[in-house]
Design a protein around this nucleic acid. Structure first.
Lengths: 195, 195
DNA sequence: TCAGACCCTGACCGATCGGTCAGAGAGAAG
DNA sequence: CTTCTCTCTGACCGATCGGTCAGGGTCTGA
């Protein structure tokens, strides 16, 4: 039986999400979260093993999508990989605006935690794909600026619909990204026409 | 007289700069800084009124250049403002890679402090200029993504020379930015070709 | 020799952090 | 009624934070 399963768990999660986006992970104390929910700090720690576990549960969906994107990226090369990375990352950034905003700036330390061990590697692969796997500094720089800028910026456009934001970002990426070095021969099947 | 003016002050500043770029402002304690310098925490607080004053002194040069850029931006409009903002900001970002990296992610809280009260407004004006003062969401989004991405990314290319980084970023911005709505008639005089 | 400015320190402070723990209260099951 | 589980809490803990303070060295100029 479920015993109506008090939604305190969910309330804590929601409050944490709100506070993390405003004051950041480090800047938000368990006390702050408890206060917003209207319970004690001990209650927060009854529902979550520790502060890190709270963050991990908050990020789980976004990280799942990111891993999925990474999986489907392997095998693609050249312009196809570039376009797929662009679409995939823009879509992810838009859908998980809030979650990404949480990690803003706290990446370096947070990435050391086991729960987030792989996302640095994944984002590196995304960047490489977006750079057309080129070694040219200009291509690498453009890809990193776009990834970082989108991560940073998309949380600040709460007044724009997902669709509008997505199309604007995708247009921007396609215009800004370095074109792949050589027009490599790619099978004309399973191809998206404008890239 | 100068009494050889013990360079402890400078050493503390340098150590703080290093640590802030790695662990962030919040993540670095006065104890950490003192340990790297090889002095006591009390010594750090003898040379600087408090932790915030240390940060302020570290940021002063970058902020000065930013204000100067803002001053020279007023009066310019359209494509001229856009190009000036692009060149000015890219140059600033490259020259002060380290300082900008310090503020990475800690902007929201730090901007509340009096020493940094104006830089949010300045960066807003920079973004507007880069967007060609357009109201179109796509233009605003592109400008913000570029500003945020450059701020975020330029600290991570320690292996690239200033000149290379600057030209790569400038190329990126010119390609990525939304062109101004209309080719407005601008006086061909008092025009800075590259500064 | 001595006063004073400068530089530095250990000891200490209150506040706050994440986290622990014993136990209270409410229902459900027997 | 008793018993058990689930939910929640106040009190408390050690660690660490930014910051204060009285005082000890050291050098300089009178």
């Amino acid at each position: 039986m479920v015993r109506a399963v008090s939604d305190t768990h969910g309330e804590i999660l929601a409050a944490a999400a709100r506070q993390f986006t405003v004051t950041g992970y480090r800047g938000t104390s368990l006390q702050d979260i408890a206060r917003e929910v209207g319970c004690s700090k001990a209650t927060v720690l009854y529902h979550f093993a520790n502060k890190e576990a709270l963050l991990a549960e908050l990020m789980a969906p976004a990280i799942g999508v990111l891993r999925d994107l990474d999986d489907r990226l392997t095998g693609l090369t050249g312009a196809a990989a570039q376009e797929f990375a662009a679409q995939g990352f823009v879509d992810l950034a838009v859908r998980f605006r809030r979650e990404i905003a949480v990690l803003r700036g706290e990446f370096p330390e947070l990435l050391c935690q086991p729960a987030f061990a792989h996302i640095q590697q994944i984002s590196d692969r995304l960047r490489d794909a977006l750079a057309g796997h080129s070694e040219r500094p200009a291509a690498r720089i453009a890809a990193l600026v776009l990834l970082a800028g989108i991560s940073e910026a998309c949380g600040e456009f709460a007044d724009i619909t997902d669709d509008d934001l997505r199309s604007a970002l995708l247009t921007l990426v396609r215009r800004a990204v370095e074109p792949v070095d050589a027009p490599l021969p790619q099978p004309p099947t399973t191809e998206d026409k404008d890239s």
